[in-house]
């Protein structure tokens, strides 16, 4: 009898032990989540691929091209930031996705395959993005990830990101290295190069839970040289905000087109 009582006690104790352990782990895992959101908005992801071209051919670094001013040149470096993605739905509303910042580098293939998460589900007719980094992130202290200063795209002497960078050589440039360096930045008026770019989609893009649609964009480096005609003899080194940078930015904001859309099954 005594033994039996003892056993029952032990079993109780055991139960309490296990339960409390269970409860602790429950409360731990629950502490971040809280109740499920009441709104029926669901979020899903999108895979974004970016291919670089020079007008109608795939972009090849160190290959000779000719700009609209008739000047021969090669490209050695092509990098830019993409951020502030948003989607335009069929009624014209602009739906923002979660803040994310990407540094795309022609020399690193993996940087041109992005995944955008936390996009509100829906059918969208256009994509909006910023070529560069919004002004808030330009002046709120040290940033991490794609925005970390060691990527070499944060100006040291005049704070702010280089939003887009195109470098190469052109024999027409009258310097020892014949190099051109277009470092386009500036987040403060009157020299802000930030302007949201809207890319209309040829067919609706469906963002839905459980699907991973793919959007394939093409960035044409040739667009840097037009419609504002860029000549290396007039403009070879740009390393500060100003009119030259604004002209280039006005050109490159047209560089994206849609290559294909694959809505997930």
């Amino acid at each position: 009898m005594i033994l039996r009582i003892f056993t029952i006690h032990t079993v109780c104790f055991l139960m309490i032990c296990l339960l409390s352990c269970g409860l602790f782990s429950c409360s731990k895992s629950n502490s971040g989540g809280g109740n499920p959101p009441p709104a029926p908005v669901t979020y899903a992801s999108l895979q974004l691929y970016v291919t670089h071209v020079m007008n109608d051919q795939p972009l090849q670094r160190n290959q000779e091209y000719t700009n609209p001013s008739g000047e021969k040149f090669t490209i050695t470096r092509f990098r830019y930031y993409l951020s502030n993605f948003a989607f335009v739905d069929e009624s014209g509303r602009i739906i923002k996705s979660a803040p994310s910042y990407f540094l795309l580098d022609d020399a690193i293939d993996s940087t041109r395959q992005l995944q955008l998460d936390s996009i509100p589900a829906g059918r969208y007719t256009a994509v909006r993005l910023l070529i560069g980094v919004d002004s808030a992130r330009n002046n709120s202290g040290v940033q991490s990830g794609a925005l970390a200063p060691e990527h070499g795209l944060f100006w040291t002497w005049n704070s702010g990101y280089i939003m887009a960078q195109l470098e190469g050589t052109a024999p027409v440039i009258n310097s020892a290295s014949h190099e051109f360096q277009f470092h386009v930045g500036g987040y403060k008026p009157p020299y802000s190069v930030l302007q949201p770019v809207t890319i209309p989609l040829p067919q609706p893009l469906t963002i839905a839970a459980g699907k991973l649609p793919q959007l394939h964009l093409q960035a044409n480096a040739g667009k840097w040289f037009t419609p504002n005609t860029i000549s290396f003899t007039k403009m070879a080194v740009i390393m500060a905000p100003g009119n030259d940078a604004m002209q280039l930015a006005a050109n490159y904001q047209h560089m994206f087109t849609v290559k294909s859309i694959v809505n997930g099954q």
Binding site: S140, G141, F154, T156, W157, N158, S159, G160
Partner: peptide
């Protein structure tokens, strides 16, 4: 006044 935040000030002397 070229540097806009105290946190990123060290970038200049480190890299210059």
């Amino acid at each position: 006044g070229g540097v806009n935040n105290l946190e990123i000030q060290p970038l200049t002397p480190f890299t210059d």
